[in-house]
């Protein structure tokens, strides 16, 4: 995590009534950037997949799987 100090300096001001914790901010930005990238990739992939599959076969198109997990509550 060599880039963490740079990240620290470039974070927006976090005025919160709870202390968000410096370490907690850094780790979440790193995780989130990686995972958010994953989501972008997934959305992009789905778009490409749909574009390609639609003209070929419209009758057997399976319902797209909902990526969000259903809540148990």
């Amino acid at each position: 995590m060599h880039y963490a100090p740079t990240l620290l300096a470039s974070l927006p001001s976090l005025l919160a009534y709870l202390d968000p914790g410096t370490g907690s901010i850094i780790i979440q930005v790193i995780i989130a950037v990686l995972l958010g990238g994953g989501i972008l990739l997934r959305t992009f992939w789905k778009k490409i997949f749909r574009k390609k599959s639609k003209p070929e076969d419209t009758t057997t198109e399976s319902p797209s799987e909902d990526s969000s997990k259903s809540d148990q509550a």
């Binding site: 979440q28 930005v29 989130a32 950037v33 995972l35 958010g36 990238g37 994953g38 989501i39």
Partner: peptide
């Protein structure tokens, strides 16, 4: 240079 909304959603997911 913070967290984009997409990145925030990635974290929550």
């Amino acid at each position: 240079v913070g967290m984009s909304k997409q990145a925030m959603l990635g974290l929550v997911e």
